[in-house]
């Protein structure tokens, strides 16, 4: 792959190391911890106790859980070479628009394809556990995406570079310095391509990763739609959600 104008191999290597190091430092669970947790499942009784929660309670618990994860995404972004050189307006916009994308990509680390479970609040849960949310379509779409992302079998390095490239999307609305972000994304994308090539991964693997972007976008939109509907029905509950959640996913 040709290098972007004015970019050296050394710089691509530096970006690769910076993104991978940031990913490892800002992943909530290490791969060893996840291996140990992978078979810690919710019992049928525990699943039923989640299913019998009120929608308000379940929404609030999920909002708290996602908010905790968002903080790790902010720290991931801050450690990516060049991100903190962007103006604050663009840093905020990229995080608001892209943090759910990063969480969806990272989700394949905490998904067990053998029993279709996802790590939630310390144990691995089936889609049925989230019934009380009243968003079965959103939950099923998330689990289906986790399944298809896990089939690609991305390494930690590939997850790191792919999520950084998605976060640095220059096509987000209201960005100030689109050109600067485009250059940054291009370097991270070339770093991902070169990493895949070095590992013998084909262009096909990259194409599979990129093919998930439309699904990720529709899940992000569905999440906002569900949140807006929930806010209409339970405005007082949304007001108790963590302020960071409301800041990121608010208007």
């Amino acid at each position: 792959n040709p290098l972007p104008d004015g970019c050296s191999l050394l710089e691509i290597e530096h970006i690769t190391q910076s993104v991978v190091k940031s990913h490892i430092e800002t992943s909530q669970y290490s791969t060893d911890e996840l291996k140990r947790m992978m078979w810690t499942l919710y019992s049928p009784e525990e699943t039923r106790s989640y299913q019998t929660k009120s929608a308000e309670m379940m929404w609030q618990q999920c909002a708290i859980y996602i908010t905790n994860a968002i903080q790790y995404v902010v720290e991931f972004a801050k450690r990516i070479t060049g991100f903190m050189d962007l103006c604050q307006n663009d840093q905020i916009i990229l995080l608001k628009a892209g943090c759910m994308d990063v969480l969806l990509i990272r989700m394949c680390r905490v998904y067990n394809p053998i029993n279709n479970t996802l790590l939630f609040d310390g144990k691995f849960a089936t889609p049925q556990l989230f019934k009380a949310l009243g968003c079965d379509d959103l939950v099923n779409a998330v689990f289906d995406l986790a399944k298809s992302l896990s089939r690609i079998q991305m390494s930690e390095e590939e997850i790191a570079l792919f999520s950084a490239a998605v976060l640095l999307s220059p096509d987000r609305p209201w960005l100030t310095d689109v050109q600067k972000i485009h250059k940054l994304q291009e370097k991270v994308y070339v770093a991902l391509q070169r990493y895949l090539q070095k590992g013998g991964g084909s262009e096909e693997k990259l194409a599979k990763m990129v093919s998930k972007l439309p699904t990720m976008k529709s899940i992000c939109n569905l999440h906002i739609d569900k949140l807006e509907f929930f806010r209409l029905v339970h405005p007082e509950t949304v007001y108790t959600f963590p302020p960071l959640y409301r800041e990121v996913f608010g208007s």
Partner: peptide
């Protein structure tokens, strides 16, 4: 700034991996 107070704070804070 007011609208994204927490994001601004998080972006300014120097959090070490240990803090995370």
């Amino acid at each position: 700034k007011e609208k994204h107070k927490i994001l601004h704070q998080l972006l300014q804070s120097s959090t070490s991996p240990v803090d995370l």
